[in-house]
Computed example of a mutant assay.
Amino acid sequence: MEIVAWVVGVVVLLAVLLALWRFLTLRSRGQTVLLRRLPASGLHGWRHGTLRYDGDQLLYYKLRSLSPRADHVFHRQQLEFLDSRNVSEEEGGFMSRDLRIATLSDDHDVRYEFALDQHGLMALTAWVEAAPDIRHERIDYAALRDRITRGKNGK
């Protein structure tokens, strides 16, 4: 019985440490956001979290999650900015009226709404629209050859 108590204590301690680590590291380095996947009816589906930009990926971390990994990953070249709107009267009951809601679509035609402050919306819009068109990216054949041959280059 004493072993079970120790195991439960260690598991609880690990969960608390993981939650504390996630809270302290993500809150200080990300953009606060509310996110929901569409279609959603009324006020349902909004989730609090944090956005972090990582190169061509947008990482979304849910506020109430203990996972050390991102809960959702958006790829820049797959996102399309559709529109933005103000917070509705209903939504104003649980989120600030200063927020703007942006609707984005991914390459699978799944739409998402992001509720951000003005600076966060500007950053998200600029990040999405600054993505290079995949058709305009040049292939670096030398780097590709080195990767395939693992740097041997025929030597």
Results as ranks from 00 to 15, higher is better:
Ile3Asn: 06
Ile3Glu: 13
Val7Cys: 07
Val11Lys: 04
Val12Asn: 01
Ala15Gln: 03
Ala15Asn: 03
Ala15Asp: 02
Val16Ile: 10
Val16Ser: 06
Leu17Ile: 08
Leu17Ser: 05
Leu20Lys: 09
Phe23Arg: 00
Leu24Arg: 12
Leu24Cys: 05
Leu26Met: 11
Leu26Asp: 03
Leu26Arg: 14
Arg29Trp: 01
Arg29Ala: 06
Gly30Ala: 05
Gln31Trp: 13
Thr32Gly: 09
Leu34His: 13
Arg37Glu: 11
Leu38Cys: 04
Ala40Tyr: 00
Leu43Gly: 06
Leu43His: 02
Trp46Tyr: 06
Trp46Asn: 01
Arg47Ala: 14
Arg47Glu: 15
Gly49Arg: 01
Gly49Met: 02
Thr50Val: 10
Leu51Gln: 04
Arg52Phe: 08
Asp56Trp: 08
Leu58Thr: 01
Lys62Cys: 00
Lys62Gly: 00
Leu63Asp: 07
Arg64Cys: 12
Arg64Asp: 02
Arg64Lys: 09
Pro68Tyr: 14
Pro68Asn: 13
Pro68Ser: 14
Arg69Met: 12
Val73Leu: 06
Phe74Thr: 01
Gln77Cys: 03
Leu79His: 03
Glu80Pro: 00
Leu82Trp: 06
Leu82Ile: 08
Leu82Val: 04
Leu82Glu: 09
Leu82Asp: 08
Asp83Met: 10
Arg85Ser: 11
Arg85Phe: 05
Glu89Tyr: 04
Glu89Met: 13
Glu90Arg: 13
Glu91Lys: 10
Gly93Met: 13
Met95Ala: 02
Arg97Ile: 07
Asp98Arg: 14
Leu99Glu: 05
Leu99Cys: 01
Arg100Lys: 06
Ile101Val: 15
Ala102Gln: 10
Thr103Ile: 12
Asp106Ala: 05
Asp107Gly: 07
Asp107Ala: 12
Asp109Val: 07
Arg111Phe: 12
Arg111Ile: 13
Arg111Glu: 15
Phe114Asn: 03
Phe114Gln: 03
Ala115Gly: 00
Leu116Pro: 02
Gln118Ile: 12
His119Ser: 15
Met122Ala: 12
Met122Tyr: 03
Ala123Met: 15
Leu124Phe: 12
Trp127Glu: 08
Glu129Trp: 11
Ala130Cys: 10
Asp133Lys: 04
Arg138Trp: 09
Ile139Glu: 12
Tyr141Leu: 15
Ala142Thr: 03
Ala143Ile: 02
Ala143Thr: 09
Ala143Val: 04
Ala143Phe: 09
Leu144Trp: 05
Leu144Cys: 10
Leu144Asp: 06
Ile148Leu: 15
Thr149Lys: 08
Thr149Ile: 04
Arg150Gln: 06
Lys152Glu: 14
Lys152Ile: 14
Lys155Cys: 06
